[in-house]
Write a protein that binds this DNA or RNA. Structure first.
Length: 891
RNA sequence: GGAGGAUUAGCUCAGCGGGAGAGCGCCUGCCUUACAAGCAGGAUGUCACAAGUUCAAUCCUUGUAUCCUCCACCA
């Protein structure tokens, strides 16, 4: 029946998809489904919305794996657990995708017109969204699809307008002509943090600027961008510069033109760079812009929106791009004797983070958000302990950014995005900022209104994500229940773009921090340590991993490798780890369920437990505690390790092996008890492992005889450590037993005793050894573990062991009867080495114990431990010495 | 110029004030009534270097070296 379905080999394809479909059908991801919510407390995660520009990569897989583990764990802890999924319209990025498509057809977006272009972009969005959603489902993400959102859906668009208008009303949004970063290819302004700097080789040109009143004399300025000289409005020197002090106020002639510009003094000029004289070009350099404002200088814009030079430069340079113009200007300067020299000069050049075109500072009308006040609130949230970063070190990064924040340019000259909710009246010029589309001008009642053509920065919608997805600005039940959210999981590359701004927005609009814990994951890299990227082609497709190894394998492997905040380096083979583990689980369960027949489940009472049973329950308790502690601190790799070593090393390797005899050959009563305990442990283990290996555990849970019809593992309560089934004393004894078994196995292996040869083993416990009773009780088990003909626990000391190979452990001696195979001199050498080693260790211990300062300062436990070690080392040495004597006699 | 991270077994990485760990790989022996995607046994490390703090340092402090991020930049 049930067991037969498990008789097959592990193949995740057999059940992963099916299980997800059932979860979806029953809507178990909706927190309202959960029948085991304990006290109504919620636990909320909002998913960092992936961009609808492409498909999910390994970084997303890591990120969503961790979120899924957290939310499943919290769900099983009895919380009303909600994970909100969604996608981001990703303004520039998505527009670029569509524009590239158009370019292949030989068209530009202008050929389509705004409406058609946006329509086409929606299609791209739909397509990518569907791929992303299906990827998340394949991964097994337990997010509530009923609450899925998109940054441009109706509700979120409303939130965006609300945020914009509110900030405007609070005087925190303003429009003005400023120097902004501008990508000529994307044709739009960028925020400061959307510019990536890259060190590039360049040249520093020293150029002569003649005096107006004496053209034979000149000063020399140094510049990397001579083509911008037509926008020069001054030359600046440092007011402290003794060389040039007397020149301030003099006029110069701008070469290649007949324009005159003054020499001014400004302290931003570095005296030790170049010539100490700087040409001031306010429209094309941020520093010059600031300087120009200080001195009330005109800003002459030289650029067209497409990045070519405009009518403000001499005719021969018009229409050229800056690089070609530079070449020509330099030639002309050289020809006319103005160029003094050119030197190589590497410097950082800004590039667009989306298309990697060189960014130009560009003077234009843009909308800005005033950030200082919001940053202060966001800093306070951290100081007050409302938010915590894991790992903590990212808090410095956050603080530094907040303290040095600059106003945020939010207007983009794009078509894809939230249109700025501002209208201009063609009749009277009135500007209308409104939550609703206005039907007429409130001032002159004209209906000739034009909406601002620009859209908002994509982050202007995503910074509202934690509350806009829950219904803000409406007052919804979801907001009441699930906001503030609990944990945000994100990579560190969007701390500035997104995390910091979400905190600011949330404090500004809701008065609360949007989440409590911020888990910063590392980046996923390839085995050469390179960031996985499309352009390098070194990415691993999560779906391919799932196809080969299954979703559980991928998820478990990522979790196991995700040490807090560290980057993870992986390749395709890395996932074998998780795959093998899943396979191991499958097979262990298969074995046990195959042996259900002829046995019936009985209740398990503490009194009937064997020492091995007590040990495994104790180990289970310890593992659960370790997992709880790890999850509490988002130490995912530690949780995964605890799961792994419990199930594989303890349960499979020792417990199942040790209880096989009882299960297969014991009395009916013993068999019943044995399978009952096994099933109980499987039930508990599936629960324990479910957050980490969701599909396989659910599949197995459905096949356990103790599972009630209709129960889903996903909403069962997480196991807690059970004090009533905790037996530390017995557990310790079992560890001694394991050690004794390993010792005999080791002897056999090292002496190459063939497996078919059974040998006699005698154990001589010392009088104080607490495990003696267990050893006696389990001597036949130990015999089978070590392939012994007989395994005697010699409590009376009457066994003759003079023919055996001795080895010692703490509390007992092991004698293996392998006389023929013993190489006496080699064994004596081994023992001698052991004595030497123990001697050295004893020496170290004695040194500590004879040090009065150690006895005085060290913790009591540390001293006790050293004393214990002393006794152990002494025991080992004296026994080994005896053993050498025995061996000598034998030879 | 500032900030942060990394340096531990051949590889990828945990650990972090009191006797060096995992997975993979490697060596040996096993198809032992679930699992060869397995079982058993084994080898492998001046815990980057140098000082300091401490009774005690792989772990804390400082410095050095190498590598990697991020931020800010002098034209």
């Amino acid at each position: 029946m049930k067991a037969q379905e498990l008789a097959k080999a592990y193949n995740p394809k057999d059940f992963e998809e099916r299980i997800y479909e059932r979860w979806m059908e029953k809507k178990v991801f909706n927190p309202d489904y959960n029948p085991n919510v304990k006290d109504g407390r919620s636990f909320t995660i909002v998913m960092p919305p992936p961009n609808v520009t492409g498909i999910l990569h390994m970084g997303h897989a890591l990120n969503n794996t961790l979120q899924d583990i957290i939310i499943r764990y919290q769900r099983m802890k009895g919380r009303k657990a909600l994970w909100v999924p969604g996608t981001d319209h990703a303004g520039i990025a998505t527009q670029n995708v569509v524009e590239r498509q158009l370019a292949k057809e030989g068209r530009r977006r202008q050929d389509l017109g705004r409406e058609a272009f946006v329509e086409r972009t929606w299609q791209v969005k739909e397509k990518h969204h569907d791929i992303i959603a299906s990827q998340l489902r394949k991964m097994g993400c337990s997010c509530d699809w009923d609450r899925e959102r998109f940054t441009m859906d109706e509700g979120l668009s409303k939130a965006v307008r609300e945020a914009f208008v509110t900030l405007y009303e609070r005087g925190l949004i303003y429009k003005g002509q400023y120097l902004v970063n501008y990508c000529p290819k994307c044709g739009t302004a960028l925020a400061d943090d959307e510019v990536e700097y890259e060190n590039m080789p360049g040249k520093l040109y020293d150029v002569r600027y003649p005096y107006a009143d004496n053209p034979d004399e000149y000063i020399t300025v140094a510049t990397t961008r001579p083509e911008t000289m037509f926008g020069d409005v001054a030359v600046a020197v440092n007011p402290e510069d003794e060389r040039y002090k007397h020149l301030v106020g003099k006029k110069l002639i701008l070469p290649l033109t007949d324009r005159q510009i003054p020499i001014i003094a400004d302290s931003f000029v570095a005296m030790d760079f170049g010539t100490g004289m700087v040409k001031i070009t306010p429209a094309h350099d941020p520093n010059d812009w600031e300087c120009g404002r200080r001195h009330n200088l005109e800003a002459i814009n030289l650029l067209n929106p497409d990045g070519t030079l405009n009518e403000n430069v001499p005719e021969k340079y018009r229409g050229l791009d800056p690089v070609s113009a530079r070449k020509l200007v330099v030639e002309d300067l050289k020809a006319q004797g103005y160029l003094v020299k050119e030197t190589d000069h590497a410097h950082d050049v800004g590039h667009c983070y989306r298309c990697h075109t060189v960014v130009e500072p560009y003077l234009s009308d843009q909308w800005f958000v005033s950030m200082k006040g919001m940053a202060e609130k966001a800093l306070k949230a951290l100081r007050d302990g409302d938010i915590t970063f894991y790992p903590r070190r990212w808090e410095n990064t956050y603080i530094h950014w907040m303290e040095n924040i600059r106003d945020w340019c939010i207007s983009r000259q794009l078509w894809w995005g939230h249109r700025i909710p501002v209208w201009y009246c063609d009749e009277c010029g009135e500007m209308i900022v409104s939550r609703e589309d206005p039907s007429e001008c409130p001032k002159c009642h004209s209906k000739n209104l034009r909406q601002d053509p620009d859209v908002l920065d994509t982050w202007f919608s995503s910074w509202l994500w934690p509350f806009s997805t829950l219904g803000w600005p409406g007052k919804t039940a979801d907001l009441d229940t699930y906001f503030p959210t609990d944990t945000l999981v994100s990579a560190y590359d969007i701390i500035f773009f997104w995390i910091s701004r979400m905190i600011m927005a949330s404090e500004e609009f809701t008065g609360k921090a949007p989440f409590r814990d911020i888990v910063i994951t590392g980046l996923v890299r390839d085995k050469q340590g390179r960031k996985m990227s499309k352009s390098l082609g070194n990415g691993i497709d999560p779906i391919e991993v799932i196809d080969i190894y299954g979703a559980d394998a991928m998820k478990f492997t990522l979790c196991y490798l995700a040490a807090q905040g560290q980057d993870v380096q992986i390749d395709m083979d890395s996932f074998k780890m998780g795959s093998r583990f899943a396979n191991k689980i499958w097979n262990a369960v298969r074995f046990l369920l195959m042996n259900m027949e002829g046995r019936e489940l009985v209740s398990i009472s503490k009194e009937r437990l064997s020492t091995m049973d007590k040990w495994i329950y104790t180990r289970f308790n310890e593992s659960v505690k370790a997992i709880d502690a790890a999850m509490e601190n988002y130490r995912f790799n530690e949780a995964a390790q605890a799961v792994y070593s419990f199930f594989w090393n303890d349960f499979c390797d020792w417990y199942v092996e040790a209880t096989k005899q009882r299960l297969l050959k014991g009395s009916q009563d013993e068999q019943n008890l044995s399978i009952s305990i096994m099933i109980d442990l499987l039930d508990k283990s599936m629960k324990m492992m479910h957050p980490f290996l969701s599909f396989i555990t659910e599949e197995i849970y459905q096949k356990l005889p103790t599972t009630k019809e209709g129960d889903e593992l996903i909403t069962q309560l997480y196991p807690a450590a059970d004090d009533d089934f905790n037996f530390p004393e017995e557990a310790k004894q079992v560890e001694s037993l394991q050690e004794a078994v390993r010792s005999v196995r080791s002897v056999r292996s090292q002496l190459s005793i063939p497996p078919e040869k059974k040998v006699k083993v005698v154990i001589k416990p010392s009088p104080s050894f607490a495990g003696a009773a267990l050893f006696s009780a389990e001597s036949s088990l130990m015999a089978s573990f070590t392939n012994a003909s007989e395994f005697i626990i010699d409590n009376d000391g009457c066994e003759d062991v003079s023919d055996a190979l001795p080895s010692s452990a703490i509390g007992y001696e092991v004698f293996t009867f392998v006389k023929d195979a013993i190489d006496i001199p080699s064994e004596i050498r081994k023992l001698t080495l052991e004595i030497e080693k123990a001697g050295k260790q004893l020496e170290g211990t004695m040194k500590k114990l004879s040090n009065p300062q150690f006895l005085q300062n060290a913790k009591k436990e540390a001293i006790a431990k050293e004393e214990g070690k002393k006794a152990e080392f002494e025991e080992l040495i004296s026994k080994n010495e005896e053993h050498i004597k025995l061996l000598r006699k034998l030879g």
